[in-house]
């Protein structure tokens, strides 16, 4: 039964994806893209990937939709030109598809416990998590310790994107009331009382959930990324309700940028401290003398915090850079 539900979700996802590509109105395309991400998140949940589902929902359906909409506000929402070089594109994609389908017939079937993927390193991660780290969420253990170096790289990718957006479209500068072009136009959704009241009620709960996801990531789905994205979502919601200027007066742009750099430095700093204490880069064992398991947990908490701070700071810097860019 559950398999059929999965088939249904994926069929919907394909239809939605076609809708995204075909939509002439880009606004509709972006909204469909949000739905597509939610469908993918649900599929991931069915495939036992709770952490990925949470991230895809928060990042794919949430943050990226908001960023897309902010960009559309600056670049126009109507697609004018028709597709060109259709034939060539169709040939290229058909060849690609045929090659991959040809390959699929010899792939292990979905859910096969004897597939090579399940044999080699995967059981080791469960054994070692139990032995050396002692936290229930094995995804968190792999993410932050066994493959912590990848995660540092990914934090740096986020940080790089933040630098890039600021480099291209400037650090967010508050406008709103001060800006003459804004005039008497309503800022944010201030004049829509019901939305405002309900929305503001939701914000403390989102923030609370963000902190829960951050500090409970060792025990349940979640961790720095999801928490950072949720934290950013709460502030973005506030900015949409009250106007970006008000939101920026609470967390100014330089603070956001400092968060973005500081989280990456915290993560990297933990790695360097491990080196100074005689271990390898990011070898948390050495952080506490005499208690390697406790040291692993301490290291994981510290670097997850770094991840959360960078993700929240960077996503907010990016959002405000788009939202406060002058539209003229």
């Amino acid at each position: 039964m559950i398999e059929l539900f999965g088939v249904f979700l994926l069929a919907l996802a394909v239809i939605t994806a076609i809708g995204v590509v075909q939509a002439r109105n880009l606004f509709a395309g972006v909204m469909l893209m949000g739905i597509f991400s939610l469908l993918m998140a649900a599929t991931f949940f069915l495939l036992d990937a709770a952490d990925v589902a949470l991230t895809e929902a928060a990042v794919g359906a949430g943050i990226s939709t908001v960023l897309m909409l902010s960009a559309l506000a600056l670049s126009g929402a109507e697609e004018k030109a028709r597709s060109r070089s259709r034939i060539l594109a169709l040939i290229v994609v058909t060849v690609t598809a045929a090659t991959v389908i040809y390959a699929t017939f010899e792939k292990p079937r979905l859910g096969d416990p004897n597939a090579p993927v399940q044999q080699h390193v995967a059981p080791w991660y469960f054994d070692m998590t139990q032995e050396a780290i002692e936290i229930p969420n094995v995804v968190t253990a792999v993410l932050s310790s066994f493959r912590g170096y990848d995660t540092l790289g990914e934090v740096i990718v986020v940080f790089t994107a933040g630098i890039g957006v600021l480099f291209l479209i400037g650090a967010a500068a508050p406008k709103g009331r001060a800006s003459p072009s804004q005039g008497d136009l309503p800022v944010g959704l201030k004049h829509h009382q019901p939305i405002r009241v309900v929305g503001k009620l939701a914000i403390p709960f989102i923030l609370l959930f963000a902190f829960y996801v951050q500090f409970h990531g060792e025990y349940s789905p979640g961790g720095g990324f999801q928490a950072g994205a949720l934290f950013a979502a709460a502030i973005i919601l506030y900015g949409m309700l009250e106007g970006e200027a008000t939101a920026l007066s609470i967390i100014p742009a330089p603070v956001l940028f400092a968060m973005s750099a500081g989280g990456a430095l915290l993560f990297g700093g933990v790695g360097v401290v491990c080196m100074l204490l005689g271990g390898n880069f990011l070898q948390y064992d050495v952080l506490l003398a005499g208690s390697p398991v406790g040291a692993q947990q301490m290291g994981i908490i510290a670097i997850e915090l770094g991840v959360g701070i960078t993700v929240a700071g960077t996503l907010l810097s990016i959002f405000f850079a788009f939202a406060t860019r002058d539209q003229s």
């Binding site: 740096i156 940080f159 630098i163 940028f257 400092a258 973005s260 750099a261 500081g262 990456a264 430095l265 990297g268 700093g269 790695g271 360097v272 080196m275 005689g278 271990g279 390898n280 880069f281």
Partner: peptide, 25 residues
């Protein structure tokens, strides 16, 4: 662990972790 054995990690970590500092200045 001697410094010499840490060179591979430092090769990446030095520019990568200086970058946030440079951006903050």
């Amino acid at each position: 662990m001697s410094l010499a054995s840490q060179l591979p990690a430092l090769q990446v970590a030095v520019p990568m972790l200086t970058a946030p500092l440079v951006a903050l200045l």
